[in-house]
Structure formats: structure tokens, C-alpha cells
Simulated scan of single mutants.
Amino acid sequence: MKKIVVTGATGQLGSELKVLSENYSQFEWFFADRTQVSLDNLAVLKVQLESIQPDVILSCGAYTAVDKAETEPELADIINHQSVKIIAQYAKDNKVKLIHISTDYVFDGSSSVALKEDAITNPINMYGATKIAGELAVMAVNPEAVIIRTSWVYSRFGNNFVKTMQRLLKERDTLGVVNDQIGSPTYAADLAQAMMDILNNGKWIPGIYNYSNEGEISWYEFVLAIQEIGGYTCEVTGIPSSSYPTPAKRPAFSLLDKSKIKAIYGVVVPGYKESLRKCMGL
């Protein structure tokens, strides 16, 4: 029986993979928290992997506090880049399949068309810089790996945009939401399914792939969808990013083109509203 280790097991994607794992009993699953696979402790990481002896690594753990990364660049780099290099090297040395999760924040937001996997990367914040460093490290030491770039991840678990907006839409009479950042959200349960579809495909074609739900929307339009599905009465208005300054700059446009993952692995990509409804249980 092949053993799958999931790093970042308590995060949104790791939690959704745990739910999904019940459908894949042909595998032995090991959901590793921060103490079992310590992405912030490079001295012990290889030894921890050796003790688990996985056949597959689903690399979901990351430093994802985008604004905090601006003041903790060293820690973000250790978790998003240096630890990922060790994992990729371990996978290469031990013929372990590796799927690593990356982000749309590797782009600068200057595109006006959906970004393909070979689009030029140019991160505009520290989080994006550490994630592209991780990608480059994976490809350098282990060209047999699969990297999936995703965007605007939310789920039933942890803290995320959808949950925050549901709370604010209940609590407030009015809400201003940024309307000049364009992309597409990703329901973590769908991304988890895409990872398993790749794993069970029967063919293994390494490289970088994009995955997010279908649709081209702003955060403002995303909140309007949450409002519509949830039946909230709060008045929502669109505001420019300049009215809501954050420590880390966000790309203005980071819509991902999903044609490669569909063509090569036959992955089905649901529309964002359909997945949002599922997540909200409506």
C-alpha cells in the first residue's frame, strides 16, 4: 500500500484532503502537522521525512500570511523556499512523487489576459518572492515534480475570505470591498480533488500547472456572490485598492489559465459560484 504524506495537514487544503482521503482507502495516509514535518526547522526536516518513508508527498504547507511576510521575510523564505528544496531533494533521491502547491502571487498583476504556466513571473510582495523561490528550487533539484499554482483559496476550514465576509455581511449594514483586483477563487476541496485526479491518472507528466475555479471576478464580485447565496442584506460597495492599503501589494490581475491541467490530466474545473454554494452548504 502506497503511503501519502500531506504537509500542512491542519491548513485549508490539508483539511480538505483529510475529508477526501476517505474515498481513497487504497492509500495509507499520513497527515503531518508542524511537529511531524517541521517546515520551519531545516535541521530536522529530512530526518522526519526518512522516518515517515512516504511514496507520495502532497506539499501543502506554506507560510501564507501575506502581509506578515513583509516583516518576517526570513521565516517566510525558510518555510516557502528552503524547506521546499529539502522536500524536493528527498523526493528525487527516494523516487517519491511530489505535488507542490504554489500561488498566483508569483505574478506582478500587469497582464490583462489569463496567465498561462509559462507567463513571466515577477512577484511584487515578499510572500510571492518566497513562493517563486520555492518553485525554482523544486524544478532545479527535482524536475519530475508537479507544481500547481492556485489562487484565492477558501474552504470550510480555518480562517479565510469567505468565512470573514459571511461574518461581516451578518454584522454590518455597509461593507466596502476592493473591486480592482481580478482573478478567480479556489475552493480547496476542488483543488484537493484535482491533486488526487493527477495522482490516479496513470500517467505522470511533471511541470507547472494552474488550478482555480472558473470565472473572472473581482473580490467585490466575489462578495456579491457570497451575499446572493447567503441571502444577506448588507449594502456592499466596490472600492479601489488605494482605499484599503495593506503592507503587501497585491497583483491587480492574476487570473490563471487552466487549459493545460484540463488537457493533460483531464481535470474538471467547476465554476466559482457552484463551488461557493457547496462550501456554504446552500
Rank of each mutant, 00 (worst) to 15 (best):
L256R: 02
L175W: 00
C234Q: 01
M165D: 00
M280A: 05
A129V: 15
K92E: 11
A65P: 08
T164C: 05
R34M: 10
N125V: 11
T71I: 15
S155A: 10
P247T: 05
S83Q: 13
I124M: 05
S155N: 03
A263K: 14
I57R: 09
K273C: 02
I4M: 11
Y187C: 05
I4T: 03
M280P: 07
K278G: 01
D93M: 09
Q26P: 02
G215K: 14
L276P: 07
G230P: 05
P206M: 13
L175C: 01
F30S: 05
T150D: 11
P240V: 09
T35S: 12
G271P: 04
Y265D: 00
S259M: 04
Y127N: 05
R277S: 13
W152P: 08
K3R: 15
T237H: 13
G238N: 09
E274G: 01
K170Q: 08
G14M: 10
P270A: 05
S218W: 09
N41V: 09
D180I: 06
K116G: 14
L58D: 00
T35M: 03
M126W: 12
F107T: 00
V37P: 15
S212K: 01
T174Q: 15
D108I: 02
G176E: 10
I87Y: 04
A263F: 04
S111K: 04
A263C: 01
E135S: 09
V177Y: 11
L136T: 04
P247C: 01
E28Y: 01
S110H: 03
L20K: 03
T246W: 09
E221P: 11
K203H: 15
A252R: 13
G176A: 02
Y211M: 08
S259W: 04
S241V: 11
G8E: 04
L256G: 00
L39P: 07
Q53E: 12
E144T: 03
L39K: 03
T174P: 12
